[in-house]
Design a protein around this nucleic acid. Structure first.
Length: 419
RNA sequence: GGAGAGAUGGCUGAGCGGUUGAAAGCACCGGUCUUGAAAACCGGCAAAGGGGCAACUCUUUCCUGGGUUCGAAUCCCAGUCUCUCCGCCA
Protein backbone atom coordinates (compact mmCIF):
# COMPACT_ATOMS: atom_id res chain seq x y z
CA UNK A 1 0.00 0.00 0.00
CA UNK A 2 1.10 3.47 -0.72
CA UNK A 3 1.50 6.05 1.94
CA UNK A 4 -1.03 8.83 1.36
CA UNK A 5 1.32 11.31 3.02
CA UNK A 6 3.85 10.66 0.28
CA UNK A 7 1.28 10.74 -2.49
CA UNK A 8 -0.05 14.03 -1.18
CA UNK A 9 3.24 15.73 -1.95
CA UNK A 10 2.69 15.32 -5.68
CA UNK A 11 -0.38 13.59 -6.96
CA UNK A 12 0.51 13.88 -10.62
CA UNK A 13 3.95 12.42 -10.08
CA UNK A 14 2.30 9.46 -8.38
CA UNK A 15 0.00 9.02 -11.33
CA UNK A 16 2.89 9.11 -13.79
CA UNK A 17 4.89 6.54 -11.87
CA UNK A 18 2.07 4.08 -12.26
CA UNK A 19 1.72 4.54 -15.99
CA UNK A 20 4.37 1.93 -16.70
CA UNK A 21 2.20 -0.51 -14.75
CA UNK A 22 -0.53 0.21 -17.26
CA UNK A 23 -2.60 1.58 -14.42
CA UNK A 24 -4.47 4.81 -14.66
CA UNK A 25 -5.20 6.20 -11.23
CA UNK A 26 -7.98 8.70 -10.87
CA UNK A 27 -5.94 11.19 -8.99
CA UNK A 28 -8.64 13.81 -8.66
CA UNK A 29 -10.78 11.41 -6.73
CA UNK A 30 -7.91 10.60 -4.38
CA UNK A 31 -7.12 14.23 -3.91
CA UNK A 32 -10.72 14.97 -3.11
CA UNK A 33 -11.14 12.15 -0.62
CA UNK A 34 -7.91 13.02 1.09
CA UNK A 35 -8.97 16.63 1.49
CA UNK A 36 -12.41 15.75 2.80
CA UNK A 37 -10.90 13.26 5.18
CA UNK A 38 -8.60 15.82 6.69
CA UNK A 39 -11.30 18.44 6.98
CA UNK A 40 -13.52 16.00 8.83
CA UNK A 41 -10.67 15.07 11.12
CA UNK A 42 -10.21 18.70 12.03
CA UNK A 43 -13.90 19.11 12.69
CA UNK A 44 -13.90 15.99 14.81
CA UNK A 45 -10.91 17.11 16.84
CA UNK A 46 -12.37 20.51 17.57
CA UNK A 47 -15.51 18.94 18.91
CA UNK A 48 -13.57 16.46 20.97
CA UNK A 49 -11.46 19.20 22.41
CA UNK A 50 -14.52 21.17 23.49
CA UNK A 51 -16.05 18.11 25.04
CA UNK A 52 -12.90 17.34 26.93
CA UNK A 53 -12.84 20.84 28.35
CA UNK A 54 -16.34 20.52 29.67
CA UNK A 55 -15.67 17.27 31.40
CA UNK A 56 -12.59 18.74 33.02
CA UNK A 57 -14.48 21.73 34.34
CA UNK A 58 -17.23 19.58 35.85
CA UNK A 59 -19.58 22.50 35.43
CA UNK A 60 -23.11 21.16 35.39
CA UNK A 61 -24.45 24.02 33.32
CA UNK A 62 -22.30 22.85 30.42
CA UNK A 63 -23.34 19.21 30.52
CA UNK A 64 -26.16 19.85 28.11
CA UNK A 65 -23.78 21.24 25.53
CA UNK A 66 -21.60 18.19 25.96
CA UNK A 67 -24.50 15.96 25.07
CA UNK A 68 -25.11 17.95 21.94
CA UNK A 69 -21.50 17.59 20.99
CA UNK A 70 -21.71 13.85 21.37
CA UNK A 71 -24.50 13.72 18.86
CA UNK A 72 -22.72 15.95 16.40
CA UNK A 73 -19.55 13.97 16.88
CA UNK A 74 -21.39 10.82 16.02
CA UNK A 75 -22.34 11.97 12.57
CA UNK A 76 -18.99 13.60 11.81
CA UNK A 77 -17.22 10.45 12.87
CA UNK A 78 -19.38 8.24 10.70
CA UNK A 79 -18.82 10.42 7.71
CA UNK A 80 -15.08 10.50 8.28
CA UNK A 81 -14.89 6.74 8.70
CA UNK A 82 -16.69 6.20 5.42
CA UNK A 83 -14.41 8.60 3.56
CA UNK A 84 -11.34 6.96 5.04
CA UNK A 85 -12.68 3.57 4.03
CA UNK A 86 -13.24 4.75 0.46
CA UNK A 87 -9.74 6.17 0.38
CA UNK A 88 -8.18 2.96 1.71
CA UNK A 89 -10.19 0.85 -0.69
CA UNK A 90 -8.69 2.72 -3.60
CA UNK A 91 -5.18 2.77 -2.15
CA UNK A 92 -5.15 -0.92 -1.29
CA UNK A 93 -5.85 -1.90 -4.88
CA UNK A 94 -3.01 0.12 -6.41
CA UNK A 95 0.14 -1.93 -7.12
CA UNK A 96 3.66 -0.98 -6.12
CA UNK A 97 5.58 1.50 -8.23
CA UNK A 98 8.31 -0.10 -10.37
CA UNK A 99 11.86 0.82 -9.46
CA UNK A 100 13.63 2.91 -12.06
CA UNK A 101 15.87 -0.03 -13.03
CA UNK A 102 12.80 -1.91 -14.22
CA UNK A 103 12.31 -1.98 -17.99
CA UNK A 104 9.02 -0.70 -19.30
CA UNK A 105 6.75 -3.24 -20.88
CA UNK A 106 3.36 -4.82 -21.19
CA UNK A 107 3.83 -8.52 -20.52
CA UNK A 108 6.35 -11.34 -20.31
CA UNK A 109 7.52 -10.69 -23.86
CA UNK A 110 9.10 -7.48 -22.64
CA UNK A 111 11.14 -9.07 -19.88
CA UNK A 112 14.83 -9.00 -20.54
CA UNK A 113 17.47 -11.65 -20.07
CA UNK A 114 20.35 -10.66 -17.85
CA UNK A 115 22.52 -13.75 -17.87
CA UNK A 116 22.68 -17.39 -18.81
CA UNK A 117 24.41 -20.08 -16.88
CA UNK A 118 25.14 -23.79 -17.20
CA UNK A 119 25.30 -26.05 -20.21
CA UNK A 120 22.13 -27.03 -22.00
CA UNK A 121 22.29 -30.82 -22.30
CA UNK A 122 22.42 -32.42 -25.71
CA UNK A 123 20.65 -35.74 -26.09
CA UNK A 124 21.25 -38.38 -28.74
CA UNK A 125 17.62 -39.39 -28.35
CA UNK A 126 14.38 -37.48 -28.10
CA UNK A 127 14.12 -36.30 -24.50
CA UNK A 128 10.90 -37.23 -22.77
CA UNK A 129 8.67 -34.96 -20.74
CA UNK A 130 8.79 -35.29 -16.98
CA UNK A 131 5.31 -36.81 -16.92
CA UNK A 132 6.24 -39.43 -19.50
CA UNK A 133 9.30 -40.28 -17.47
CA UNK A 134 7.41 -40.27 -14.20
CA UNK A 135 4.52 -42.35 -15.45
CA UNK A 136 6.82 -44.88 -17.07
CA UNK A 137 8.66 -45.19 -13.77
CA UNK A 138 5.28 -45.50 -12.05
CA UNK A 139 6.30 -42.74 -9.71
CA UNK A 140 4.03 -39.94 -10.87
CA UNK A 141 0.34 -40.72 -10.77
CA UNK A 142 -2.00 -38.08 -12.09
CA UNK A 143 -4.98 -40.39 -12.58
CA UNK A 144 -4.93 -41.40 -8.95
CA UNK A 145 -4.93 -37.77 -7.91
CA UNK A 146 -7.86 -37.09 -10.19
CA UNK A 147 -9.73 -39.91 -8.51
CA UNK A 148 -9.11 -38.77 -4.96
CA UNK A 149 -8.91 -35.02 -5.35
CA UNK A 150 -9.44 -33.62 -8.83
CA UNK A 151 -7.44 -32.07 -11.61
CA UNK A 152 -4.11 -30.33 -11.13
CA UNK A 153 -2.96 -32.59 -8.33
CA UNK A 154 -0.48 -35.44 -8.40
CA UNK A 155 0.74 -38.39 -6.39
CA UNK A 156 4.53 -38.55 -6.25
CA UNK A 157 5.68 -42.00 -5.24
CA UNK A 158 8.65 -44.04 -4.16
CA UNK A 159 12.05 -42.81 -5.30
CA UNK A 160 10.64 -39.65 -6.82
CA UNK A 161 9.02 -38.82 -3.50
CA UNK A 162 12.42 -39.37 -1.93
CA UNK A 163 13.96 -37.08 -4.51
CA UNK A 164 11.38 -34.43 -3.76
CA UNK A 165 12.12 -34.65 -0.06
CA UNK A 166 15.87 -34.61 -0.73
CA UNK A 167 15.54 -31.43 -2.77
CA UNK A 168 13.66 -29.75 0.04
CA UNK A 169 16.16 -30.83 2.69
CA UNK A 170 19.18 -29.92 0.65
CA UNK A 171 17.83 -26.45 -0.16
CA UNK A 172 16.89 -25.79 3.44
CA UNK A 173 20.32 -26.86 4.64
CA UNK A 174 21.99 -24.62 2.12
CA UNK A 175 19.99 -21.55 3.10
CA UNK A 176 20.21 -22.21 6.81
CA UNK A 177 23.84 -23.23 7.09
CA UNK A 178 25.45 -21.22 4.34
CA UNK A 179 23.11 -18.34 3.53
CA UNK A 180 22.14 -17.22 7.00
CA UNK A 181 18.41 -17.80 6.99
CA UNK A 182 16.53 -18.92 10.09
CA UNK A 183 14.52 -22.06 9.63
CA UNK A 184 10.80 -21.76 10.21
CA UNK A 185 8.11 -24.36 10.05
CA UNK A 186 5.05 -22.14 9.87
CA UNK A 187 1.29 -22.60 9.85
CA UNK A 188 -0.08 -23.12 6.34
CA UNK A 189 -3.19 -21.14 7.08
CA UNK A 190 -3.41 -17.37 7.25
CA UNK A 191 -6.07 -14.94 8.39
CA UNK A 192 -7.61 -12.38 6.11
CA UNK A 193 -5.54 -9.64 7.63
CA UNK A 194 -2.33 -11.60 7.12
CA UNK A 195 -3.22 -12.15 3.47
CA UNK A 196 -3.89 -8.44 3.18
CA UNK A 197 -0.48 -7.66 4.64
CA UNK A 198 1.47 -9.16 1.78
CA UNK A 199 -1.00 -8.02 -0.89
CA UNK A 200 -2.90 -11.22 -1.77
CA UNK A 201 -6.07 -9.55 -0.59
CA UNK A 202 -8.32 -7.83 -1.41
CA UNK A 203 -7.46 -7.88 -5.08
CA UNK A 204 -6.55 -11.51 -5.69
CA UNK A 205 -9.13 -13.34 -3.68
CA UNK A 206 -10.04 -15.47 -6.69
CA UNK A 207 -6.67 -17.18 -6.56
CA UNK A 208 -6.91 -18.19 -2.90
CA UNK A 209 -8.35 -21.25 -1.27
CA UNK A 210 -10.53 -20.12 1.57
CA UNK A 211 -11.21 -22.65 4.28
CA UNK A 212 -14.22 -22.88 6.44
CA UNK A 213 -13.76 -22.72 10.16
CA UNK A 214 -16.59 -21.97 12.51
CA UNK A 215 -18.72 -19.17 11.21
CA UNK A 216 -17.76 -16.61 13.79
CA UNK A 217 -14.01 -16.50 13.44
CA UNK A 218 -12.08 -14.38 10.98
CA UNK A 219 -11.84 -15.71 7.42
CA UNK A 220 -8.96 -18.07 6.84
CA UNK A 221 -7.00 -19.06 3.75
CA UNK A 222 -4.50 -21.67 2.72
CA UNK A 223 -1.23 -19.92 1.99
CA UNK A 224 -0.44 -19.53 -1.73
CA UNK A 225 3.23 -19.20 -0.76
CA UNK A 226 5.19 -19.18 2.50
CA UNK A 227 5.98 -15.55 1.71
CA UNK A 228 2.62 -14.68 3.23
CA UNK A 229 3.18 -16.24 6.58
CA UNK A 230 6.92 -15.56 6.84
CA UNK A 231 6.66 -11.89 5.95
CA UNK A 232 3.82 -11.36 8.40
CA UNK A 233 6.06 -12.51 11.25
CA UNK A 234 6.89 -8.83 11.64
CA UNK A 235 3.35 -7.54 11.23
CA UNK A 236 2.36 -4.74 13.66
CA UNK A 237 5.88 -4.37 14.98
CA UNK A 238 8.48 -1.72 15.47
CA UNK A 239 11.82 -3.49 15.42
CA UNK A 240 15.21 -2.14 16.34
CA UNK A 241 17.69 -1.60 13.51
CA UNK A 242 20.04 -3.99 15.30
CA UNK A 243 17.59 -6.80 14.63
CA UNK A 244 17.84 -6.22 10.89
CA UNK A 245 18.28 -7.82 8.47
CA UNK A 246 15.95 -10.64 9.42
CA UNK A 247 16.04 -13.65 7.13
CA UNK A 248 13.60 -16.56 7.21
CA UNK A 249 13.33 -19.72 5.18
CA UNK A 250 10.63 -22.37 5.10
CA UNK A 251 9.71 -25.32 2.96
CA UNK A 252 5.96 -25.53 2.70
CA UNK A 253 3.18 -26.69 0.47
CA UNK A 254 1.56 -23.85 -1.45
CA UNK A 255 -2.03 -23.73 -2.57
CA UNK A 256 -3.30 -21.84 -5.57
CA UNK A 257 -6.53 -21.91 -7.48
CA UNK A 258 -4.78 -20.92 -10.70
CA UNK A 259 -7.97 -19.21 -11.76
CA UNK A 260 -7.59 -17.74 -15.20
CA UNK A 261 -5.05 -20.28 -16.35
CA UNK A 262 -7.50 -22.84 -17.70
CA UNK A 263 -5.93 -24.78 -20.50
CA UNK A 264 -2.46 -23.59 -19.59
CA UNK A 265 0.11 -26.24 -18.69
CA UNK A 266 -2.61 -28.79 -18.15
CA UNK A 267 -0.27 -31.73 -18.58
CA UNK A 268 2.20 -32.70 -15.95
CA UNK A 269 3.11 -30.98 -12.72
CA UNK A 270 4.20 -27.58 -13.98
CA UNK A 271 1.05 -25.90 -12.74
CA UNK A 272 -0.65 -27.53 -9.79
CA UNK A 273 -3.10 -26.46 -7.13
CA UNK A 274 -0.65 -27.71 -4.53
CA UNK A 275 3.14 -27.77 -4.66
CA UNK A 276 6.13 -27.57 -2.36
CA UNK A 277 8.30 -24.52 -2.36
CA UNK A 278 11.28 -23.38 -0.35
CA UNK A 279 10.76 -19.72 0.30
CA UNK A 280 13.17 -17.05 1.50
CA UNK A 281 12.02 -13.83 3.12
CA UNK A 282 14.13 -10.88 4.19
CA UNK A 283 13.20 -7.88 6.29
CA UNK A 284 15.72 -5.07 5.88
CA UNK A 285 16.28 -1.36 6.33
CA UNK A 286 14.54 0.19 3.41
CA UNK A 287 17.68 1.44 1.68
CA UNK A 288 19.08 -2.09 1.68
CA UNK A 289 16.31 -3.53 -0.49
CA UNK A 290 18.16 -3.66 -3.77
CA UNK A 291 21.37 -5.06 -2.28
CA UNK A 292 19.36 -7.70 -0.52
CA UNK A 293 17.59 -8.54 -3.75
CA UNK A 294 20.93 -9.31 -5.43
CA UNK A 295 21.99 -11.38 -2.46
CA UNK A 296 18.75 -13.31 -2.38
CA UNK A 297 18.79 -13.97 -6.10
CA UNK A 298 22.29 -15.38 -5.74
CA UNK A 299 21.08 -17.68 -3.00
CA UNK A 300 18.55 -19.05 -5.47
CA UNK A 301 20.90 -19.44 -8.42
CA UNK A 302 23.53 -21.18 -6.28
CA UNK A 303 21.09 -24.01 -5.83
CA UNK A 304 20.84 -24.43 -9.60
CA UNK A 305 24.61 -24.26 -9.91
CA UNK A 306 24.93 -26.98 -7.29
CA UNK A 307 22.39 -29.13 -9.07
CA UNK A 308 24.08 -28.58 -12.42
CA UNK A 309 20.93 -27.29 -14.04
CA UNK A 310 21.14 -24.73 -16.84
CA UNK A 311 19.23 -21.53 -16.22
CA UNK A 312 18.91 -17.91 -17.10
CA UNK A 313 18.19 -14.84 -15.06
CA UNK A 314 15.54 -12.45 -16.28
CA UNK A 315 14.41 -9.06 -15.05
CA UNK A 316 10.67 -8.63 -15.24
CA UNK A 317 9.27 -5.63 -17.06
CA UNK A 318 6.89 -3.23 -15.36
CA UNK A 319 3.80 -4.89 -16.76
CA UNK A 320 4.71 -8.43 -15.72
CA UNK A 321 5.66 -7.83 -12.11
CA UNK A 322 3.59 -8.95 -9.17
CA UNK A 323 1.32 -6.56 -7.32
CA UNK A 324 3.60 -5.85 -4.38
CA UNK A 325 6.96 -5.84 -6.16
CA UNK A 326 9.15 -2.88 -7.08
CA UNK A 327 11.71 -5.08 -8.84
CA UNK A 328 11.70 -8.76 -9.68
CA UNK A 329 14.18 -11.26 -11.05
CA UNK A 330 12.86 -14.52 -12.38
CA UNK A 331 15.16 -17.50 -12.58
CA UNK A 332 14.21 -19.83 -15.38
CA UNK A 333 15.46 -23.38 -15.67
CA UNK A 334 16.02 -25.25 -18.90
CA UNK A 335 13.41 -27.88 -19.71
CA UNK A 336 14.58 -30.16 -22.53
CA UNK A 337 11.09 -31.46 -23.36
CA UNK A 338 9.84 -27.94 -24.01
CA UNK A 339 13.12 -26.80 -25.46
CA UNK A 340 12.92 -23.61 -23.44
CA UNK A 341 13.45 -22.00 -20.05
CA UNK A 342 10.66 -22.09 -17.48
CA UNK A 343 10.28 -20.09 -14.28
CA UNK A 344 11.62 -21.89 -11.22
CA UNK A 345 12.16 -18.95 -8.90
CA UNK A 346 11.02 -15.40 -8.54
CA UNK A 347 12.81 -12.97 -6.27
CA UNK A 348 11.24 -9.63 -5.51
CA UNK A 349 11.90 -6.53 -3.54
CA UNK A 350 8.66 -5.03 -2.28
CA UNK A 351 10.29 -1.87 -0.89
CA UNK A 352 8.02 -0.57 1.88
CA UNK A 353 4.85 -1.60 0.10
CA UNK A 354 4.04 -4.59 2.28
CA UNK A 355 5.38 -2.90 5.40
CA UNK A 356 2.84 -0.11 5.10
CA UNK A 357 0.10 -2.71 4.88
CA UNK A 358 1.49 -4.71 7.79
CA UNK A 359 2.45 -1.64 9.84
CA UNK A 360 5.99 -2.90 10.22
CA UNK A 361 8.52 -0.25 11.09
CA UNK A 362 11.99 -0.03 12.54
CA UNK A 363 13.90 2.43 14.64
CA UNK A 364 17.15 3.53 13.06
CA UNK A 365 20.29 4.67 14.80
CA UNK A 366 18.84 8.16 15.21
CA UNK A 367 15.67 6.69 16.68
CA UNK A 368 13.67 7.74 13.68
CA UNK A 369 10.87 5.40 12.78
CA UNK A 370 10.49 4.21 9.21
CA UNK A 371 8.83 1.42 7.35
CA UNK A 372 11.03 -1.61 6.70
CA UNK A 373 11.71 -3.13 3.31
CA UNK A 374 10.57 -6.69 2.62
CA UNK A 375 11.77 -9.19 0.05
CA UNK A 376 10.77 -12.66 -0.92
CA UNK A 377 12.14 -15.26 -3.26
CA UNK A 378 11.78 -18.90 -4.06
CA UNK A 379 14.82 -20.94 -3.36
CA UNK A 380 13.46 -22.92 -5.18
CA UNK A 381 10.09 -24.23 -6.25
CA UNK A 382 10.45 -27.91 -5.38
CA UNK A 383 7.96 -29.31 -7.88
CA UNK A 384 9.54 -27.56 -10.79
CA UNK A 385 13.04 -28.43 -9.61
CA UNK A 386 11.97 -32.04 -9.52
CA UNK A 387 10.79 -31.71 -13.11
CA UNK A 388 14.03 -30.05 -14.14
CA UNK A 389 16.17 -32.74 -12.55
CA UNK A 390 14.12 -35.48 -14.18
CA UNK A 391 14.26 -34.00 -17.63
CA UNK A 392 17.85 -32.80 -17.63
CA UNK A 393 19.26 -35.94 -16.05
CA UNK A 394 17.20 -38.45 -18.01
CA UNK A 395 18.87 -41.34 -19.81
CA UNK A 396 17.81 -43.03 -23.01
CA UNK A 397 16.33 -45.94 -21.03
CA UNK A 398 14.08 -43.61 -19.07
CA UNK A 399 16.13 -43.71 -15.89
CA UNK A 400 17.25 -40.60 -14.07
CA UNK A 401 20.70 -39.91 -12.69
CA UNK A 402 20.69 -38.25 -9.27
CA UNK A 403 22.78 -35.05 -9.08
CA UNK A 404 25.71 -35.69 -6.78
CA UNK A 405 24.84 -33.00 -4.28
CA UNK A 406 21.55 -34.77 -3.53
CA UNK A 407 22.95 -38.24 -3.02
CA UNK A 408 23.77 -37.78 0.68
CA UNK A 409 20.10 -36.96 1.14
CA UNK A 410 19.06 -40.15 -0.67
CA UNK A 411 21.09 -42.89 0.95
CA UNK A 412 23.69 -42.43 -1.79
CA UNK A 413 21.28 -43.49 -4.49
CA UNK A 414 22.83 -42.74 -7.87
CA UNK A 415 20.03 -43.40 -10.22
CA UNK A 416 16.28 -43.82 -10.31
CA UNK A 417 15.08 -46.51 -12.63
CA UNK A 418 12.16 -48.87 -13.09
CA UNK A 419 12.17 -52.01 -10.89
C1' G B 1 -16.58 -29.96 24.91
C1' G B 2 -17.12 -28.43 30.68
C1' A B 3 -15.13 -24.98 34.91
C1' G B 4 -12.37 -20.86 36.17
C1' A B 5 -8.56 -16.62 35.51
C1' G B 6 -6.79 -12.91 32.53
C1' A B 7 -5.57 -9.22 28.17
C1' U B 8 -2.35 -2.10 30.37
C1' G B 9 3.80 1.17 26.97
C1' G B 10 9.92 -2.68 24.03
C1' C B 11 9.23 -6.20 28.45
C1' U B 12 7.47 -7.09 33.80
C1' G B 13 3.57 -4.89 36.36
C1' A B 14 0.26 -1.07 39.50
C1' G B 15 -4.22 1.44 38.83
C1' C B 16 -10.53 -0.42 39.00
C1' G B 17 -15.52 6.57 37.37
C1' G B 18 -12.64 12.79 37.06
C1' U B 19 -5.45 16.54 34.62
C1' U B 20 -3.74 8.67 34.37
C1' G B 21 -0.52 8.77 28.34
C1' A B 22 -0.96 5.96 32.52
C1' A B 23 3.02 4.35 39.27
C1' A B 24 7.23 1.18 39.92
C1' G B 25 10.99 -2.00 37.97
C1' C B 26 13.77 -3.86 33.75
C1' A B 27 15.66 -2.67 28.98
C1' C B 28 17.39 1.40 26.08
C1' C B 29 19.77 6.43 25.30
C1' G B 30 22.58 10.84 27.35
C1' G B 31 25.59 12.74 31.46
C1' U B 32 28.75 12.56 36.14
C1' C B 33 32.47 9.29 38.06
C1' U B 34 36.58 5.82 35.90
C1' U B 35 42.89 4.86 32.33
C1' G B 36 38.66 1.88 30.09
C1' A B 37 34.51 -0.94 31.58
C1' A B 38 31.16 -2.26 35.50
C1' A B 39 28.70 -0.35 39.73
C1' A B 40 26.55 4.05 41.78
C1' C B 41 24.15 8.68 40.98
C1' C B 42 21.49 12.45 37.72
C1' G B 43 18.48 13.12 33.34
C1' G B 44 15.73 11.31 29.03
C1' C B 45 12.62 7.58 26.82
C1' A B 46 5.16 5.33 23.31
C1' A B 47 2.78 5.34 18.71
C1' A B 48 -0.68 7.07 15.07
C1' G B 49 -3.22 11.05 12.98
C1' G B 50 -4.45 16.46 12.19
C1' G B 51 -2.79 21.84 12.03
C1' G B 52 1.79 24.94 11.47
C1' C B 53 7.66 27.17 7.41
C1' A B 54 8.99 26.29 12.33
C1' A B 55 9.24 26.47 17.68
C1' C B 56 5.05 24.06 18.76
C1' U B 57 0.11 22.45 19.26
C1' C B 58 -4.42 19.49 19.10
C1' U B 59 -6.84 14.61 18.87
C1' U B 60 -6.81 9.41 19.45
C1' U B 61 -4.92 4.89 21.62
C1' C B 62 -4.79 0.69 28.40
C1' C B 63 -7.36 -6.66 23.27
C1' U B 64 -11.65 -5.48 19.49
C1' G B 65 -16.68 -3.62 18.75
C1' G B 66 -20.99 -1.61 20.99
C1' G B 67 -23.43 0.69 25.47
C1' U B 68 -24.07 3.64 30.29
C1' U B 69 -22.14 8.67 31.89
C1' C B 70 -21.13 15.65 31.55
C1' G B 71 -16.64 12.32 32.05
C1' A B 72 -14.41 5.24 31.19
C1' A B 73 -8.08 1.80 31.40
C1' U B 74 -11.78 1.68 35.33
C1' C B 75 -19.08 0.08 35.05
C1' C B 76 -22.44 -3.04 31.41
C1' C B 77 -23.02 -6.20 26.83
C1' A B 78 -20.94 -8.94 22.65
C1' G B 79 -16.66 -10.91 20.32
C1' U B 80 -11.38 -12.41 19.85
C1' C B 81 -7.19 -14.27 22.04
C1' U B 82 -4.15 -16.27 26.17
C1' C B 83 -3.50 -19.19 30.67
C1' U B 84 -4.99 -23.09 34.50
C1' C B 85 -7.99 -27.48 35.67
C1' C B 86 -11.20 -31.60 33.76
C1' G B 87 -12.67 -34.48 29.41
C1' C B 88 -11.26 -35.99 24.43
C1' C B 89 -7.33 -36.61 21.02
C1' A B 90 -2.49 -36.84 16.77
Amino acid sequence: MHNIKEIRKDFDHFKNQLKSRNIDVEVDNLKDLDKKNRLLIQKKENLESEKKDISKKKDESLFKRSKEISKELDSVLNEQKQIKLDLDTILSSIPNIPHKDVPNGIDENDNSEISKSGKVPIFDFKPKTHYELGENLKMLDFDLATKTTGSRFVFVKNKLALLERALSNYMLDKHIIKNGYSEISPPLIATENTMYGTGQLPKFENDQFEIKFDDKSERKFLIPTAEVILTNIVKDKIVDFKELPMRFVASTPCFRKEAGSYGKDTKGMIRQHQFYKVEMVSVVEKDECLNELERMTNCATEILDDLGLPYRKVILCSGDMGFSAEKTYDIEVWLPSENKYREISSCSSCSTFQAVRMKTRYKNQKKEINYVGTLNGSGLAIGRTLIAVMENYQQSDGSIIIPEILRPYMNDLEKISLN
